[in-house]
Amino acid sequence: MSIVKRPEIKNTWYLPAILSGMGITFKNMILNLFGKRQMLTLNYPEEKYEYSPRFKGSHVLTVKKDGAIRCTACMLCATHCPADCITILAAEHEDPSVEKFPISYEIDTLRCVYCGFCEEACPVDAIRMGPEWQMPGINGANFVHDIRALAKRPNLKGGVISVVDEEERHKAGI
């Protein structure tokens, strides 16, 4: 068996196929120029995608109503972290009812894989994955984020209050 291609006008002439292909291209170009169809390309520095609230971005330490961070230094997130990027230094609190609190809470963002296990492990809703993605930086920039960067960076506008505190506030009727 052999396939025989008969010489027809359709097969010998390549111009009709090219013209039909270019027709589709120019039709899309003109439609996109006058904005009749939504463009697929993201014009990055001007436009940005809006992500859903469960997007796993850079970390946020939630704060109490008085401004102190909620973390109780139980070390569950540091133990559960697969990349070992969380280092916590705990200390005794002045208040005898509070067991301990973290002096320093540091996350090495160069090692972090943004898996969200710290958020899952936390029993008091003290750490969350925020909505903003990690920004690139030059070699030698500070990538180890401390409490001030995690809880009180300017994007958060004074800190994120936890869901638990919100419920208490609703019960009190404020």
């Binding site: 993201l42 972090c112 894989v113 993605w133 990690q134 930086g137 070699n139």
Partner: peptide, 12 residues
Amino acid sequence: LYVPGCPPRPED
């Protein structure tokens, strides 16, 4: 330049 993330977003 370092681009942290695992993996980073294309916007990043």
